[in-house]
Structures are given as structure tokens and as C-alpha cells.
């Protein structure tokens, strides 16, 4: 059987809220090492990769590897019924066709359980190669969200270019053009405002803003987000989930024919 108890139950809610608009149905894979998900959006342009390590759970038991197909919309509906401070426990039998979510209030005066029907989902699993990225910029998650939102009012695509002067986000459309440059700032008073840039070589790539905007729904999960880019490769947008793992998004660039 599978059983996992997460004291910070709202973390699961944040994860599902971050991906449910991008991915409709997905398989959650459980093994003794943790709880993971890999899924592409409907257009197969982006890939979501979630990893929650077993040691990040208060209790984690997985007797044999299993894949649980869920409708993320329905899962979000169920998790919405959990209190913000509730402890969430997931349970599933090895051969069952449901998964149970139990919510316990911190004062232990309210316990509820919700059963979600599992689905059979055919999903293609992709191998994500280790990549030596040319540039990685780590910036406040809220700043990334703002850049994507602001540029979306100007154009549909963004050119992200990393040089020694900083990382520039440029967009153009009927309205005009916009450029936003973020520079390294590792001496900001507040840690949450710091920006760091690791540049091995200059790189510039073009992406659809719609997807980058969608990834920003993960903002509540982490103070910072890292964008890693390499020439002619998908960008990796990485939200670290403290002491547990990560939620990563990969987006294929737009490339000349």
C-alpha cells in the first residue's frame, strides 16, 4: 500500500494549483524514494516535473511502485476542502481504483476524508538529460511573475537574452516594444530580493509568454525561481520546494525553420 503524511498539507494544494491549468490529467508515480509527476501540456510544448522526496514527508510508506492517474481539476476540488493548516495524508491500496485524502486540523478537532477516483492515463515518459546550461538566473519568484505578466500586455513571445550585463526580457507587438533587464544583486538587504546570475556564455532564446505565465502560478511555492538556458534547448524554470524537492517546468523554444 501507499501512505504519505504531509504536515504542510497546503504545499500539495499549491503544487496542484500551479499545474492544473497546464495539465488536465496526470499520473502521480509513487516509489520508496518519493512522490513524482511528469506530464506534458496538451500541445506537448512544455513539460512539468514534480519531485517530492519521501524524507520530506512525516510518514511515507510505499510497498511497491505504483502510478495513480488523477484528474488535476478534481484533485484541486478536493484539496480546496482542506484547511490551510491541515495535515494531509494520502492513502491508496496496491490494487485499488481510488486514493483517499485525509485532512486533520492542527488542533485535531476535525478530521475529514475524501476519496478520489483514479483514472487510466496513457502517458509518455520523457528522459530529461543532464544539461550544462549556458546561463542560470535566480530571481525572486514574484519578480518573474511580474515580468511575464507585464510583457504579456505587449506581445505573445519573449526573447530572453543573458549577457554579462544581465538578463534581458524583450517583447514586441502591436502596442510597441518592451525590455526589462534584471542584473545580479546579491547584496540586497533582504534575501528575498536577491538576484544571482551564473553566466558561462551568452545565450538568447525565444519563448511563448503564455506558457511562462502559466508556470508563474507556482509563485506561492518558493521565494525564488531559477531560469536555466542553453542554446537551442528548452528553458528550465525551477521552483525549489524547501526540504522536499522541486517543481520544474521545461518549455521548448521557438526556433527558425
Amino acid at each position: 500500500m501507499f501512505e504519505a503524511r504531509l504536515v504542510q498539507g497546503n504545499l500539495l494544494k499549491k503544487v496542484v494549483d500551479a499545474v492544473k491549468d497546464l495539465v488536465t490529467d496526470a499520473n502521480f508515480d509513487c516509489s520508496s524514494s518519493g512522490f513524482t509527476l511528469q506530464a506534458m501540456d496538451n500541445s506537448h510544448v512544455s513539460l512539468v516535473s514534480l519531485s517530492l522526496r519521501s524524507d520530506g514527508f512525516e510518514h511515507f510508506r510505499c510497498d511497491r511502485n505504483m502510478s495513480m492517474g488523477m484528474s488535476l481539476g478534481n484533485l484541486a476540488k478536493i484539496l480546496k476542502c482542506a484547511g490551510n493548516d491541515d495535515i494531509v495524508t494520502m492513502k491508496a491500496a496496491d490494487d485499488g481504483d481510488t486514493v483517499t485524502f485525509m485532512f486533520e486540523s492542527p488542533k485535531e478537532d476535525r478530521v475529514s476524508d475524501f476519496e478520489l477516483k483514479l483514472m487510466d492515463i496513457d502517458s509518455e515518459h520523457l528522459g530529461i538529460p543532464d544539461t550544462d546550461y549556458a546561463a542560470t538566473v535566480t530571481l525572486p519568484a514574484a519578480e518573474y511573475q511580474r515580468i511575464c505578466r507585464d510583457l504579456s500586455s505587449i506581445g505573445d513571445t519573449v526573447v530572453i537574452s543573458a549577457t554579462k550585463d544581465g538578463v534581458k526580457f524583450s517583447s514586441s507587438g502591436d502596442v510597441g516594444t518592451a525590455n526589462i533587464t534584471v542584473r545580479q544583486n546579491t547584496t540586497a538587504d533582504k534575501k528575498e530580493e536577491q538576484v544571482s546570475i551564473d553566466l558561462k556564455e551568452p545565450v538568447a532564446l525565444t519563448f511563448a509568454l503564455r506558457y511562462l505565465n502559466s508556470f508563474a502560478k507556482a509563485t506561492p511555492l518558493a521565494s525564488h525561481v531559477s531560469l536555466s538556458m542553453a542554446r537551442d534547448l528548452p528553458v528550465m524554470v525551477d521552483y525549489q520546494i524547501s526540504d522536499m524537492g522541486h517543481l520544474r517546468f521545461y518549455l521548448a523554444p521557438k526556433i527558425e525553420d
Binding site: L126, G127, K254
Partner: peptide
């Protein structure tokens, strides 16, 4: 215009 590639054209099936 640049063409949107799919993610599976970069990452092969595992």
C-alpha cells in the same frame, strides 16, 4: 516567424 517546437523533439521517450 519562429516556429514553436514540441518538447518531445528535445527529450526522447524514457
Amino acid at each position: 516567424d519562429d516556429k514553436q517546437r514540441t518538447i518531445s523533439s528535445f527529450f526522447a521517450s524514457a
